[in-house]
Design a protein around this nucleic acid. Structure first.
Lengths: 146, 146
DNA sequence: TTAGATGCAAACGATTTGCGCGGAA
DNA sequence: TTCCGCGCAAATCGTTTGCATCTAA
């Protein structure tokens, strides 16, 4: 299951969206571009205020757009512990995160996720389908310890 | 640091709260009792409407109480993917969860958590302190597949 | 007595929805 | 031309906070 560290490009994402029945609107292109250029998961608000967005976009539009993309499994929702949900592209390889309890900063962990095998095990024995997992480490970052 | 699979009892929890500087109020006793009897993490609302609560309790009271308990590290907050946060007692041994994307049901996984070693590794190399983790599996449960 | 808790009500922030218009197909 | 997607505004929901009162210590 080789890692796909290569960043997917905008055009192939747009094709993927078209295939899923979505229209190629400027809002769609803009949001995808923001997610592509973000190194980490973003909240709806962060997407809306990103300098990479280019256009102005209503929060409700972003909400419905990202929700649609999540249903089509092009985007993945992540909980973290903040009140607002975070979103990232599903195409990038699976990531685990290290989050600061105090300042909320997010680091992407450069590790081999140790849960893949267990996930297959659970898929076999639990009766659940479409399994995925979320693994996050919480702590206090160096800056916040002072 | 031997596992404490034994359910902690109310009195020792209350002692723990006293030691942490909290007062032994009826709301505190009631909320602890609810968390003790719950087999799984609960939302603030679920705590407030639990038949085990015994007394009537304002949502704001439960919110402040649980928040205090979380600060004192007697209670642990868990994200799941629902809009509302879930809480459980920290005394119980660490648990990982299997959650249904559709109906939101929660199963406690009876597994040896495969992340403990990795967590120690990250604790050493990341500069973060007070590390913990959260591991959740999401899927569609048998009932929701029909 | 008094600092910490509680109840009530209002404020907040992040969605979530209704509706009429506009643009992709 | 049609129907999906958009902006705007209002509704929801889960907290979060201010304040006066109560109560454990």
């Amino acid at each position: 299951m080789g890692h796909s560290h290569a960043t997917p490009d905008l055009d192939s994402l747009l094709d993927q969206c078209s295939d899923a029945g979505l229209r190629r609107t400027s809002a769609l292109r803009a949001c995808l571009e923001v997610l592509l250029k973000a190194g980490q998961p973003l909240t709806l608000q962060e997407i809306g205020t990103s300098p990479f967005l280019g256009i102005s976009c209503d929060p409700a539009t972003i909400y419905r757009l990202i929700t649609r993309l999540e249903e089509k499994r092009i985007v993945r929702r992540i909980g973290f512990h903040s009140r607002a949900a975070h979103y990232c592209l599903r195409e990038s390889s699976h990531q685990d995160y290290l989050i600061c309890r105090d300042c909320g900063s997010v680091e992407v962990l450069d590790i081999t996720c140790p849960v893949e095998h267990l996930e297959k095990e659970i898929a076999k024995t639990s009766g659940y389908s479409d399994l995925e997992h979320e693994l996050e480490f919480f702590g206090r970052c160096a800056a916040c310890q002072r």
